[in-house]
Design a protein around this nucleic acid. Structure first.
Length: 643
RNA sequence: GCUCUUGUAGCUCAGUGGUAGAGCACUCCCUUGGUAAGGGAGAGGCCACGCGUUCAAUCCGCGUCAAGAGCACCA
């Protein structure tokens, strides 16, 4: 006789015996009424299930509540369903599609005859609240695939039916029902809608069905959901704070740059913004020099025939700006590599010359789709710190390793801590043998291993000519942007006739490594501004010191101090205006100037300075009064340390 | 490029079918004041652009351009 008894092991390793199969909810109830009420889902042998899930064999079980990360995930997922339920109540003609969780919330895509408006959103959110308050049970049902397809076709949900049809025929699918609404879903879900208490609909947007721009556009509603009201408030507050760090806002506030209709996707750099640019550029120039690169400069406009050789003319013309003159067609360069190959080709190269490293501050133009433009992060005209290394296959490994080390050191100097590294691996359509790709991909992995950093691999995302490492950074609201890259390319140099003479007097095409540390200076400076919330480190700050007089009486002394600072190479401004000192301090605090020198009669008599240092929180504090020379060496030390 | 939203003074934003308003900034005057906004006066706008509807359009409609959010794209 087979026993029906089940023993359940809880996370504290205690074991509970049941003489019959039990549901997660029953186990929770056996532990305590409070837990039974708090239970959102269960984790049986590591697998997330509903509280109604019946356990019929010995198993390890954790009751999932809103204290667990899994619990929050379940809440968000169930809130997405609640959203769909509310939409179907208010707009019965709308068709549901998919509704996954995302960072901080969820979204759900609907097909409807018109887009939802912000007013609709208010009504939908209200309806969601009502449905949650009714504490409607959420129940699960399993159907054979074909029956599920029939069911959804029967209720006019064509998209759902299409999704299920793409599931293998022999698989059963689970359906979840709450009130009058039934949705296809793997689950798990909260046991009833009453568990969903803290949520807010954020925005509407368009999104393509199945993520393909050839398909119709659906209406997507984004929402956020939390276990506690305070968490949601903290999140909304964080978003608000992050908006203040937006580089477009700060660019205006700090008078760094502007953009205007006449040049969409292109930047007008103002003196202060260009000062930052120059600091970044000079820094990177030194990086070139210190690491065996020779800086070069190539033309912006190149004949059509060259772009035909590279394949751009046929494949990427839509993204290129072109021009013509005297019956010749020209392309404005979207990348710097061909120019570098032409410099390489300008002489007969020996294997002894390799690796040959060229670096350029290469100005590129790409006619990006209008909807892709974003402040100075995604632009049509930009400058790359673009380098190309011509080398042999044996040299790939060391070049990649050295580059990775260098890139990480540079990011550290600019104050970045959070860098996501990815390796994009071979796509379906690619050139070169599998062995070559294996070696190249492994070289990139080894380069990262050497620095003991973690990375993510993206299969199929590589370029057709070779794999690449990508270095990503986040902006103020968490959007990820690619900055640096290291790409192995077996194709381009040979395609443009690049070759060197090897030990055996054979002419061979070199491997070309494409590498950039900051990527585009525009994007990098944008990220830099957001990461530092506009309070750039002293070495990058456009204005490092402002010296101001308390009254007219100290004007000459201020001028003397400012001249001394200028002579020391410090970026300084004298403010002798007839304004109150508190007014001046406020103005420069808003401008996030690192050091303010307040010079009154006391300082003038003693030949000293009183410096107010920016505190990073929008305020400032006074340093003890010191001699001018002490101040100068303090500033110079801090600049040198890139603090 | 697609969906939605937006475009009014240098900036941030009100506002109305009868050609516009605030705060800050700007100019001038008074004020010489020790750590986040002293007081007064003044100047400043083709209400993104074009075409319609209307006796009359910044406001309503259509189109264009640009920006914002998301999607797609990022060789």
């Amino acid at each position: 006789m087979v026993s029906n008894s089940v023993s359940i092991t809880l996370p504290d390793q205690s074991v509970r015996q049941f003489d019959h199969p039990v549901s997660v909810a029953e186990v929770a109830a056996s532990i305590g009424a409070g837990l039974a009420k708090a239970a959102l889902a269960g984790k049986v042998d590591g697998k997330l299930v509903d509280t109604s899930h019946v356990i019929s064999q010995d198993a390890a079980l954790a009751i999932v509540t809103d204290k667990d990360a899994d619990g929050l995930e379940v809440i968000r997922h169930s809130t997405a369903h609640l959203l769909a339920y509310a939409v179907k109540e208010l707009f019965p003609d709308a068709q549901v599609t998919i509704g996954p969780t995302i960072d901080n919330g969820f979204y759900y895509d609907f097909s409807y005859k018109r887009a939802f408006t912000p007013e609709d959103l208010v009504a939908i959110e209200k309806k969601m609240g009502e449905l949650a308050k009714q504490d409607i049970p959420v129940t699960r049902k399993v159907l054979p695939r074909d029956e599920a397809v029939k069911y959804f076709k029967g209720i006019g949900e064509a998209y759902k039916a299409e999704i299920i049809e793409s599931i293998p025929a022999d698989q059963a699918v689970s359906l979840y029902t709450e009130g009058a609404f039934t949705d296809l879903c793997r689950g798990p879900h909260v046991p009833s809608t009453g568990k969903l208490k803290v949520f807010k609909l954020m925005k509407v947007a368009g999104a393509y069905w199945r993520g393909d721009s050839k398909n119709e556009m659906l209406t997507r509603i984004y929402g956020t959901a939390w276990t506690k009201k305070e968490d949601q408030e903290a999140y909304l507050n964080m978003l608000e704070e992050a908006e203040k760090r937006d580089h477009r806002k700060l660019g205006k506030l700090l008078d760094l740059f502007h953009m205007q209709e006449e040049a969409p996707g292109m930047v007008f750099w103002h003196p202060k913004g260009w000062s930052i640019w120059q600091q970044v550029e000079q820094y990177l120039r030194k990086v070139y020099v210190d690491n065996g690169y020779q800086e070069i400069r190539c033309p912006q406009i190149l004949d059509r025939s060259l772009w035909e050789k590279t394949g751009h003319w046929d494949n990427y013309q839509d993204n290129m700006f072109t021009t013509q003159s005297e019956k010749h067609d020209y392309g404005i360069k979207p990348m710097n590599c061909p120019g570098h190959v032409l410099v390489f080709n300008s002489d007969l190269r020996s294997y002894r010359d390799l690796p040959l490293r060229y670096g350029e501050f290469g100005s590129c133009h790409r006619n990006e789709p209008s909807g892709a433009l974003h402040g100075i992060m995604r632009v049509r005209g930009f400058v790359q710190d673009d380098g190309h290394i011509f080398c042999t296959e044996e040299q790939i490994q060391s070049e990649c390793t050295n580059f990775n080390q260098l890139a990480l050191a540079v990011y550290k100097d600019f104050g970045f801590k959070d860098i996501a590294i990815k390796i994009a691996l071979r796509p379906d359509k690619c050139v070169g043998s599998d062995e070559t790709w294996d070696r190249a991909e492994e070289a990139l992995r080894n380069a990262l291993r050497a620095c003991a950093v973690a990375w993510e691999e993206l299969p199929g995302e590589g370029a057709f000519y070779g794999p690449k490492i990508e270095y990503h950074m986040k902006d103020s609201i968490g959007r990820s942007w690619q900055c640096g890259t290291m790409q192995v390319d077996y194709n381009t140099a040979g395609r443009l006739g690049g070759e060197y003479v090897d030990q055996h007097s054979n002419r061979v095409a070199p491997v070309m490594l494409h590498r950039a540390i900051v990527g585009s200076l525009e994007r990098f400076i944008g990220i830099l501004i957001e990461n530092h919330a506009g309070s750039l480190p002293l070495w990058l700050a456009p204005l490092q010191v402002v010296a101001m007089n308390v009254t007219e009486n100290q004007a000459a002394y201020v001028t003397e101090v400012v001249n001394a600072l200028k002579a020391a190479g410090i970026r300084v401004h004298a403010d002798l205006r007839n304004e109150k000192i508190s007014y001046k301090i406020r103005e420069y605090s808003v401008q996030k100037i690192p050091y303010l020198l307040v010079l009154g009669d006391k300082e003038k008599e003693a030949g000293t300075v009183t410096a107010r240092v920016r505190d990073g929180k929008g305020g400032g504090e006074n340093l003890p009064t010191m001699s001018l020379n002490e101040f100068i060496s303090r500033v110079k030390d801090e600049i040198a340390a890139k603090k």
